[in-house]
Design a protein around this nucleic acid. Structure first.
Lengths: 209, 209
DNA sequence: CTGTCAATGACGCATTTGTGTCATTTTTAC
DNA sequence: GTAAAAATGACACAAATGCGTCATTGACAG
């Protein structure tokens, strides 16, 4: 038996969800709230799972996540949303939600998702998953070939990013410091930079490391 | 009608999938291959969707993605995998797959996922979605206060990350180069680093910029 | 009102860095 | 088998950097 609570300001959707849960084998809806503030104040802690609307009057669902998690660290939180806006998703992820469902998700799917979440998964509708992947790729570009660095140059670039000085690099690779400086010179030319800090920034930003 | 092809080296799983597809309303399995190499060579381009195993002999499914995408840019690729290893998922995402399903996913779920994928979503099983979220959070840390840098120090740190030299910074901020060096000195102390490159790496990795 | 801290500025000095020019030996590619 | 690219190494020099020490001013907290 999975105990669930709901925070959702629209009466019809709230009632619909709680009825769905109570009517379904293995689920009980033990509490419902119409605002994040109410939920934070009156959540009993008896539920294993919380369905949390994002668009709430006053405090948003996203702002509520860290506060609720602080009070009940083990509680799983699944966000409900009508909009799959990039920023919203991003914020929800970073705030620590455990799943993200669009409100139009069919009931059977919702129930399946709740079970998955209890079992440690992060259910999300495919369209939201798509957004997450796109965000991910945006933040981790991962170019490699474009600057045509050689193996050795990439190796040295990595050591630069680790913060090693030329002399440390030369000792680590058992080569002369002059050689290290030569490699670095070539790295600069290829990345079109003129200092270590510029090189490491570019290396990180372009995903060369 | 959704046309699907399959690349999967295990005969039983391959046959099972193709039978499932052909037996299901709205799906046709138009081709199957036992290796990535075969798929790349002989895919007709008539399919809208490809089910691609990750663990294949010789060339892995992940290596195959960019090659296949290059030949058929519009083709949707869903990865099939038994293991939800972090690195594998990461690589698959960055290689540009459109969905990620565990092989143990129930048939009904698989068919639903294929439809979702065709409609532009990125279906993934909740346990994989969980991994993706964790990876995401790992790569976007988002700290700020922890090093208690002053406003001015943050300002200068940003300019360092932009690759400016001390002189350029002093000119930009209308202060003496000595002052700039002083600020940088304090930044180093707070970040516990000893060079510009170390500072900018830390600034980026810790999300200070 | 006094002490702490941020921001500003300075001098000095050993080291490191960025860059120019050159040379030898392996690897790789055609 | 030869030409190009990569990896190794060197010398030199101006500029930048990292760090030690010190001083003045303004803001803010107790």
């Amino acid at each position: 038996m999975i105990n669930v609570s709901i925070i959702e300001d629209h009466q019809d959707f709230r009632k619909g969800l709680s009825s769905l849960l109570d009517a379904s084998e293995g689920f009980t809806c033990i509490d419902t709230f119409i605002s994040a503030e109410d939920g934070i104040k009156y959540l009993s802690g008896d539920e294993e799972l919380l369905l949390l609307d994002i668009n709430l009057p006053n405090m948003s669902g996203i702002e509520a996540i860290p506060l609720i998690k602080k009070k009940f660290p083990g509680l799983k939180i699944i966000m409900l949303t009508i909009l799959d806006d990039d920023n919203t998703i991003m914020e929800a992820i970073l705030s620590g939600a455990d799943g993200y469902l669009l409100k139009k998700t069919p009931p059977i799917q919702i129930l399946a998702s709740l079970k998955e979440c209890i079992n440690g998964g992060s259910p999300m509708t495919p369209s939201i998953a798509k957004k997450v992947l796109m965000l991910f790729k945006k933040y981790i570009p991962k170019n490699n070939e474009s600057f045509s660095l050689t193996k050795r140059e990439i190796e040295i670039l990595n050591l630069l990013v680790e913060g090693l000085s030329n002399i440390s690099i030369s000792k680590k690779l058992f080569i002369s410091i002059q050689t290290v400086r030569n490699h670095i010179r070539h790295i600069y030319e290829k990345l079109q930079v003129h200092s270590k800090s510029q090189a490491v920034v570019k290396a990180i930003r372009e995903g060369l490391v």
